[in-house]
Design a protein around this nucleic acid. Structure first.
Length: 424
RNA sequence: GUGGGCGUAGCGCAGCUGGUUAGAGCGCCAGGUUGUGGCCCUGGAGGUCGAGGGUUCGAAUCCCUUCGCUCACCCCA
C-alpha cells in the first residue's frame, strides 16, 4: 500500500484551485488591513517552542515532530506560527522601525496527534500578529479582522467566543483561589484534571468531563479577581466590538491551551463542523516577546485553521466552481499529422489560447469523445483531406457546427469563434 | 495514548445464518457510423475480497493477529 503518511493528505488539481482561491481572498483582506506577509522556516530550534508555547502544554509535551540534525542541533517542525514570527521579529529588530509591527503568515504546521475530522498532522494555518501595541483597540481589531475576513469569504453564521485570562499578576491571585476551591473535592476530578490542578489549573475550567464541569459550577470566576487595568482593558475591547456591532459571546471559562496568552482570548466557532469546531483562535500575548529574548513589547494575534475553514466553505457551498477546460482541443487524425497538431498547439499557445492536443492519433470518434470530456468549446480537427489545402476543420462542440479554416488565419478565426460562443 | 465503526473493480457500494466461474451501477475501452462527441444499444477490460495465520471437505463470509482508513476522547486550528 502506498498511501500518504497518517494525518497527511494530497490536494488534487480540482481542490488545489479552490485552495488557491481561498488563499487569495485571505491575502487580499489581510493586505487591505495593512499586514505584511512573513515567511518563516517550517522548522525552528526546539528551544523556541519550549520557551514560547510553554513546557507543560500538550503541544510541546507530546505533539512535536522533533529531530536532531547532522550538526547535533535539536530542531522541530513548527507546531504553530506565533513563536517563529516573534523569533523573526526579534532577530530582525523589527521593533526598531517605530510603531507597531503588523505581520501575517500562511502555511503548513505539524502536530503529532491522532487525526480525526478537522484535525491533521500536517495542516495549514494563516495567522495575524500585531506586535508592539497594547491598546485594547489592537485586540478589537484582531477580532473584527477575523470576523470581516470570514464575512468576505461569505461566512456569516459563525460564533465568536470571548474571554479574558488576566495578566500574570491577577491571574496568579486567582489561581490560588481556584486551587483552594477545587482541592477540597479533588477526588471528583478526572485523572487529567487532578494533574492539571497544580500544573495548569485554569485548564480544569474548560474540561468537558461531566464531573469536572459540575465542580467548576461552584468555583470562583477569574472575572471577579481581575486587577483594575485588566478589567478596564476587557471592558474597552467589548465596547469597541459593540461600537461596530460585531456580536460575541463572553465565555468566562474559555481558557486556551498555550501558555503565552494574557488578557484577551477568543475563538471563532462553526457549530456544524464536528468535534473540532474552532476555525480560529487567538488572543493577547504581552510577555511572549520578552520571554523569547526580545524587548518587553506586547502583542496580540490569532491563527486560523485552513482545513477547517475550507471544510466550512465547502459545507456552505461557498467555493466557486473552477474549470480547467481548454479553449481548443486539437485532434490530429493520423500519425503523420501529429506533428502538425503539435505545431498548432504551440502556435495557438503563443497567441494566448488555452490549448490541449491529443497525443496519440486514435479514431476521430475517440478523440472527439476526449475533446468533449475536456470541456473545450472548440475542437480543431486536422485530417488528410483538409490538410492537402493547408486547412483544418473547426468544430463548435455545443452546436456541432463546423467550418474549414486556413492554417495561416487560424489564430484569428479561433479568436472570433471563441468570442462568439462566449457572448452567447 | 484510549475507545467505537469500516476495509470487496478506478469511484461509491451489494454480497457476509460458510457452498460452483465474486456482482450491479457510475467511470473506462471498443463496436453499432471505413472522418464526427454528448443520448441510446451491444460487447469488453479491470478484483492477491487490506495483509498474515487458524477452523472447515469448502472462507469475501466464522475465529485470532496485524496494517490501514475513519469517528470520538485528550487537546487544539
Amino acid at each position: 500500500m502506498t498511501v500518504a503518511p497518517r494525518g497527511t493528505y494530497d490536494i488534487l488539481p480540482d481542490q488545489a484551485m479552490a485552495w488557491q482561491w481561498m488563499e487569495m481572498k485571505i491575502r487580499e483582506v489581510l493586505l487591505a488591513y495593512g499586514y505584511g506577509e512573513i515567511r518563516t522556516p517550517i522548522f525552528e530550534h526546539t528551544e523556541l517552542f519550549l520557551r514560547g508555547i510553554g513546557e507543560t502544554t500538550d503541544i510541546v509535551e507530546k505533539e512535536m515532530y522533533s529531530f536532531t540534525d547532522k550538526g547535533g542541533r535539536n530542531l522541530s517542525l513548527r507546531p504553530e506560527g506565533t513563536a517563529p514570527v516573534v523569533r523573526a521579529y526579534i532577530q530582525h529588530k523589527l521593533h526598531g522601525q517605530g510603531g507597531a509591527t503588523k505581520l501575517f503568515y500562511l502555511g503548513p504546521m505539524f502536530r503529532q496527534e491522532r487525526p480525526q475530522a478537522g484535525r491533521f498532522r500536517q495542516f495549514h494555518q494563516f495567522g495575524v500578529e500585531l506586535i508592539g501595541e497594547d491598546s485594547p483597540m489592537a485586540d478589537a481589531e484582531m477580532i473584527v479582522l477575523a470576523h470581516d475576513l470570514y464575512r468576505q469569504l461569505g461566512l456569516t453564521g459563525l460564533e465568536i467566543y470571548l474571554n479574558t485570562v488576566g495578566c500574570p499578576v491577577c491571574r496568579q491571585e486567582y489561581k490560588k483561589e481556584l486551587i483552594a476551591s477545587l482541592q477540597a473535592s479533588s477526588d471528583q476530578l478526572c485523572s487529567s484534571c487532578r494533574l492539571r490542578l497544580d500544573r495548569n489549573p485554569l485548564r480544569v475550567l474548560d474540561c468537558k468531563e461531566a464531573s469536572c464541569q459540575a465542580l467548576t459550577e461552584q468555583v470562583p470566576l477569574l472575572h471577579d479577581y481581575l486587577c483594575l487595568d485588566c478589567r478596564e482593558h476587557f471592558q474597552q475591547v467589548t465596547n469597541l466590538l459593540d461600537q461596530v456591532q460585531v456580536k460575541y459571546e463572553i465565555k468566562p471559562k474559555l481558557v486556551r491551551g498555550l501558555d503565552y496568552y494574557t488578557r484577551t482570548v477568543f475563538e471563532v466557532i462553526n457549530h456544524d463542523l464536528g468535534a473540532q469546531n474552532a476555525i480560529c483562535g487567538g488572543g493577547r500575548y504581552d510577555g511572549l516577546v520578552e520571554e523569547c529574548g526580545g524587548p518587553s513589547v506586547p502583542g496580540v494575534g490569532f491563527a486560523s485553521g485552513m482545513e477547517r475553514l475550507f471544510m466550512t466553505l465547502e459545507q456552505k457551498a461557498l467555493l466557486p466552481a473552477f474549470s480547467r477546460a481548454p479553449q481548443v482541443y486539437i485532434i490530429p487524425l493520423s500519425a503523420d499529422l501529429t506533428t502538425v497538431g503539435f505545431e498548432a498547439a504551440f502556435l495557438l499557445r503563443q497567441n494566448g489560447f488555452k490549448v490541449e492536443v491529443g497525443f496519440t492519433p486514435k479514431s476521430l470518434k475517440a478523440q472527439l469523445k476526449a475533446a468533449n470530456r475536456s470541456g473545450a468549446p472548440l475542437a480543431l480537427i486536422i485530417g488528410e483531406d483538409e490538410w492537402q489545402d493547408r486547412q483544418v476543420t473547426l468544430k463548435q462542440m455545443d452546436t456541432g457546427d463546423q467550418v474549414r479554416a486556413d492554417w495561416a488565419e487560424l489564430a484569428e478565426q479561433i479568436g472570433q469563434m471563441l468570442a462568439q460562443t462566449e457572448s452567447l
